[in-house]
Computed example of a mutant assay.
Amino acid sequence: MPLIVESHRLNSATLLRRYGQARVLDVTSRGVEPWIRVSPFYPHGAIPVPFSPGYVGASVEGIWQGLKVFERADVDISKFSVTTMKGLKRSVRANGPVLGHREGVHGTRLLGYLDARYTIYLPTYLWVIEHNLQAEIATLRQLSANETVILLDYETNADVTNLQKPLSHAALIKLYIENLWPNANSSSTSIHQSK
């Protein structure tokens, strides 16, 4: 049976019309246990910060935001320790345009958006999957073997190279389960989205 990624904004009537009876799981930061744990905002703790020996973060999003560099603000390691799933985002309004992501807390190189996805976001989220989400992955494999499972996320973009849209962590979970985890050497990866 299929594992499908859909927008959190769709109502249950639309999902029912598109897919019939299906198990719908909200994997966003507004989801319930255990699926909220799949959110990059979830504070698993002790997540290694890429290119930063000795530094760990509470969440994937905290690491991603913490290493972001703006015109008027550099790395913000305070984001690494946020455990409330709130106050993680750093705004362009307050900090000026984004210049890139620093290659580590003390790195001298700024990474462009695509390089940062491949060397910061993907490895960090993969670490969380492999160290903190194996029970949820096993459950998803079991469920999707017997019924249609829909993962609701705010984003549905599964193409790492599509920089126009934020990357969907639900799509990354689907790719992981299907053994299609994206890497910098593979061609653009995307999942089929029903329209």
Rank of each mutant, 00 (worst) to 15 (best):
L99G: 06
D115K: 09
L99C: 08
R109A: 05
G96D: 14
R93N: 12
N95M: 02
E103K: 11
R141I: 02
P123M: 08
A138N: 03
L133D: 05
R93C: 04
E136T: 12
T124M: 06
R109E: 14
K86Q: 11
E103F: 06
L126M: 03
I120D: 06
I120N: 05
V98T: 13
N132F: 09
H131M: 00
L133P: 04
Y125P: 00
G112L: 03
L88F: 13
G112T: 09
G104A: 12
T124F: 00
L110R: 10
K89H: 15
A145D: 09
H106T: 08
E136S: 13
H106V: 06
H131K: 12
S91D: 08
R93A: 13
H101M: 03
W127H: 00
D115P: 03
E130G: 00
L88K: 11
V92M: 11
G96N: 09
V98H: 03
I120Q: 04
L110Y: 14
R109S: 07
R90I: 12
L114F: 05
W127Q: 01
N132Y: 15
Y118H: 01
I129K: 00
A116T: 06
S91V: 13
P97W: 08
H131F: 03
H101R: 05
R117V: 01
E130M: 06
H131Y: 04
A94Y: 04
S91E: 15
L143A: 11
T139I: 14
A94R: 15
E130K: 04
K89I: 15
I137Y: 14
A94H: 06
D115G: 08
G112I: 08
M85N: 11
L122W: 13
I137A: 05
L126F: 02
Y121R: 01
P123T: 02
T124A: 01
G107Q: 06
A135N: 11
I129R: 05
E103Y: 07
E136H: 04
R102N: 01
G100I: 03
D115N: 00
R102F: 03
P97I: 10
G96Y: 09
A135I: 15
R141W: 01
L143Y: 10
L110Q: 13
